[in-house]
Write a protein that binds this DNA or RNA. Sequence first.
DNA 1: GCCGTTTTCGGCCCGACTGTTTTCAGTCG
Length: 589
Amino acid sequence: MRYFVGKIRLLWVVDMPVQNAEIAAMFDQAAELLEIGGENQFRVRAYRRAARVIEGLPKAAGSLLKSGRDLSELPGIGKDLAGKIADIVKTGHFGLLDTLKRKLPGELGEMAALPGLGPKRIKLLYDKLKVRTLNDLRQAIKTERLRELRGFGPAIEKKLLGALEKPQPARRFKLSVAEAEAEALVGFLRGSGRVVVAGSYRRRRDTVGDLDVLVTAKDGAAVGDSLAKYENVAQVIAHGPTRTTVMLRSGLQVDVRAVPEESYGAALLYFTGSKAHNIALRGLANQHGWKLNEYGLFSGKRRIAGATEEDVYEKLKLAYIVPELREDRGEIAAAQAGKLPRLVKLSDVRGDLHVHSDWTDGTVTIAEMAAAAQARGYEYIALTDHSRRVAMTHGLDPARLARQIREIDRLNEGLKNFTILKGIEVDILRDGSLDLPESSLAKLDIVVAAVHSHFDLPRQAQTERVVRALENRHVSILAHPTGRLIGEREPYDIDMDRVISTARKAGCYLEINAEPDRLDLHDLHARAAKLAGVKLAVSTDAHSVDAYQCMRFGIDQARRAWLTVNDVLNTRPLAELRKLLKRRASVRG
DNA sequence: GCCGTTTTCGGCCCGACTGTTTTCAGTCG
């Protein structure tokens, strides 16, 4: 459950709305400096909690304010913080943070990211040695002044110097990459006890910072000893009687925690998180006069629940909350009210609406893609090859598209209980027009539109471009709506609130692309779409038969977005799906 | 700074591990 606040470079442009992530970063930075300054820890915590709440909002704080929402209704945000958010939205500046930076100048916030340095030690360094920058710190170590301070010794010195010489940026790993590591590790530890990978991995976040592994065992130290011998371990960071932390060769950190069988549920709950969800649960326990920790739910010294997660939720008068929802984004209130959504499941999926073939950059024939989908139990796929502008994929021009349509008609005649929908992934050109004439698009069952170029347009131009494409009456679905490639390409700058409201007005749909490098829309945007009444397609963008299996990653994200069967287009039987697609064509036609 | 079936004050999640110390503070999750 590692948590890291990255440095965010803020660039203020006239009319550039402040993003929620930027407000959250400002609150986090303020919390850091307040803490170093010795401020009341609960005030510090309030800023951190507010940062997480802002970060988790499905809409930009600015647009909520514009629509008249009172932000002090949000959990963890009172009158004071609501006012500060409004100021930041209005001016782009956070007065308190500016003041704190004047009072505690330098790189104190950055120092907090170093291992072994927390607020107390940073303040001590600042007060006694006038250490303000990372370079000051380096000098203090080299001149051996650091070790004169109470609480500092050779071990910390060595650790700090290592981090200063070879900075390790906090990395997050794609869920699919973490999954491969996790499965190998579980295989290795099996035999030590019951082994579960918890943390953000179990909550199915799109990226994972570290692996939190729970093992039920009497002898925790033995589990740690065994882990230390795992061939992929590069370094043992900590090793105690119940918890061992190691760094794998891949750079992924692993925490293994051993607990007794009777604490399994409470420990799983604790280790699954999120931290904010846990804090809220413990707060509830307190209200009953109980205590919740990783060993169980306790009334005095008596354990009243803890063997299973279900026990603990039940005792707290909550419906069971699945891991994907445990983010303190309203799930606890929903569980109290019995209003948790019945989330969409992988088995609800009846087809895939974004699929390629060897007519463009796919690896196999249309017939093979169809056969593999039918073998998975699907009722339909939409064949959506690229259009001509995406030249390196040998994209389809009107003539080849017409031939492909005839080919699909021919194939469909030979298929039983399965249909190939005729579609295209049409390129959205720089000006928002589409890469194929209306006469071609009109012949199709489904048109998926997507951006594949000019990722760096300014926000306004990028938004107008996509809005114009969605307003084309032939477009059914916007594919991978922000174009991000996790860890490789940032999302392009676009006003997602406007894209969503356009989709609603135009009667079209947005995609959750299940490809593990994309997972775009991400959970918050998908939830915003649902709240606006826009349905989503969860599609694999499969370029091969094997890629169909990525559907589960898309469904994970759909579940994190609180989506039900009703919110997902491709859970519909074919006839219903056709109606939804047809309604689209007639909205403006 | 937030919040309220303990409601406008007085609480605020809880425990493991390290490195320093010689009994525990600080950091971390």
